[in-house]
Computed example of a mutant assay.
Amino acid sequence: MADFQLIHRPAVHEAFASSAGAVTLQPLPEGRVIQVLGKPDGDDPRQILGEFAGVEPHGLRSAGPGQWFIVGDSPMTHDEFQAMAAKLAQHAFLVDQSHGRVRVGLKGTRIVDVLAKGTGVDLDRVAVGESAMTLVGHISVHLTRLAPDAIELMVLRGFAESLWDDLVRMSREFA
């Protein structure tokens, strides 16, 4: 058997900034994305997740009824994942999506105007910490409001470059 080495290549690797900070696009660290699927007969796993270091309030994102994403900038070790899965075994299933999802950050005073070109979500009504599953153009994204002027889009890895290109085109008006 031949020796081989896996090479990690980021899905998106360059930032885009418009003039005067109106819009900045930035690939976010490919750390951890863990999907939490609550069991129908289990307790709410969010209380248990709060016991784990690194799962801050903004790191736990709603993905639908009984579903969440645990998101962070640093990877989770296999032992940390196993410990969390064992602690939640009666309440939820965990699925590591870190390899298959990419996060893109948008910051600036015009991010709502940029995203209004591609999604039907009324972003003025999405409070800090809230999330929504939506489309940006033809691409399905998980959108989270991180701050009044910051939004994160999480997308399947195979669509990251296409989403990035669309976001750059939608932002050019504000350059």
Rank of each mutant, 00 (worst) to 15 (best):
G42V: 10
G42N: 08
G42E: 12
G42T: 10
D43I: 13
D43M: 14
D43R: 15
D43S: 15
D44A: 14
D44H: 10
D44F: 08
D44I: 12
P45C: 11
P45A: 13
P45R: 08
P45I: 13
R46W: 03
R46Y: 05
R46L: 15
R46F: 04
Q47L: 15
Q47R: 14
Q47V: 15
Q47P: 00
Q47T: 15
I48D: 13
I48E: 11
I48R: 14
L49K: 07
L49T: 09
G50R: 12
E51G: 15
E51M: 12
F52L: 09
F52I: 09
F52R: 08
A53H: 10
A53Q: 13
A53R: 14
A53P: 00
G54L: 10
G54E: 08
V55W: 05
V55N: 09
P57G: 04
H58W: 09
H58Y: 05
H58V: 10
H58I: 13
G59V: 06
G59A: 12
G59D: 10
G59Q: 08
L60Y: 01
L60S: 07
R61D: 03
R61M: 14
R61G: 01
R61I: 11
R61C: 07
S62N: 15
S62T: 08
S62I: 03
A63D: 09
A63H: 04
A63L: 12
G64H: 00
G64A: 01
P65F: 06
P65Q: 13
P65G: 07
P65D: 14
Q67Y: 00
F69K: 05
F69R: 10
F69T: 05
I70P: 00
I70W: 13
V71C: 06
V71T: 14
G72R: 04
D73K: 05
D73M: 02
D73N: 11
D73F: 01
S74T: 13
S74G: 06
S74L: 14
M76Y: 03
M76K: 03
M76V: 08
